[in-house]
């Protein structure tokens, strides 16, 4: 106590002012940081997409956009489906245990029907869209290439079910979006199938 100054009181007031001010700054920061999250408009833009697959040939691929992401629909031939079973040893996650797909697509073909692959064609490494190399004889892909996807960004390789190879940067298989067939020819991407 000197010159009538109460140091305890002064210390308390300093701390209290700082704390209240700090809480105020934090509270003020919250709306600014939250304003950076997706707006209501961005959240709404995710409607399902309908595709006619009746005109697809074996080995053909069509690309469509769902939620702004590239979706590939691939019609696989008998031999391509057979090869999916032969390369298990070369895959990192052959049973899709740590990958993202609906429960009904957690199988060797990673699809509802073995013939049709419906996939988010985005590399799980850093988000490039891998290029489609369905031809086993593709000279650029090496001699024992069974057909699949190659990401030119960092060299990740996937098979024709989007399953990732060992020894490449991508950690998991490519994502399978929710999808269902209305009838034999019409596919809807963005809605889940009812599993019987």
């Amino acid at each position: 106590m000197s010159n009538g100054v109460d140091n305890n009181r002064r210390h308390f007031l300093t701390v209290a002012t700082s704390v209240v001010g700090g809480i105020g700054v934090a509270a003020m920061a919250a709306p600014f940081l939250a304003s950076l999250r997706p707006s209501a408009r961005a959240r709404l833009a995710g409607a399902p997409v309908e595709v006619d697959v009746s005109k697809m040939d074996e080995g053909e691929r069509i690309t469509l956009s769902w939620r702004g992401r590239p979706i590939h629909v691939v019609r696989r031939g008998e031999d391509a489906i057979e090869r999916l079973g032969e390369i298990r040893d070369r895959l990192r996650d052959p049973d899709s245990d740590s990958s993202d797909q609906p429960e009904y697509a957690k199988n060797e073909y990673r699809s509802l029907k073995p013939e049709y692959l419906v996939m988010v064609a985005v590399c799980t490494h850093l988000g490039c869209s891998p290029s489609f190399h369905p031809d086993p004889a593709d000279p650029a892909m090496g001699s024992d290439w069974p057909g699949g996807y190659f990401c030119a960004c960092h060299g990740s390789r996937f098979d024709l079910a989007g399953r990732v190879y060992r020894g490449v940067p991508a950690p998991t298989n490519m994502d399978i979006p929710p999808h269902r067939f209305v009838d034999d020819n019409t596919l809807i991407v963005g809605e889940d199938a009812e599993v019987a």
Partner: peptide, 26 residues
């Protein structure tokens, strides 16, 4: 796309963080 995806690698908070940076899902 590649650089923002670097953030989504962080375990747990990665994907929400990438969405927060983009302000959108893409």
């Amino acid at each position: 796309q590649v650089i923002i995806s670097l953030f989504s690698v962080l375990p747990g908070i990665g994907e929400p963080l990438a969405i927060w940076i983009r302000g959108d899902y893409l």
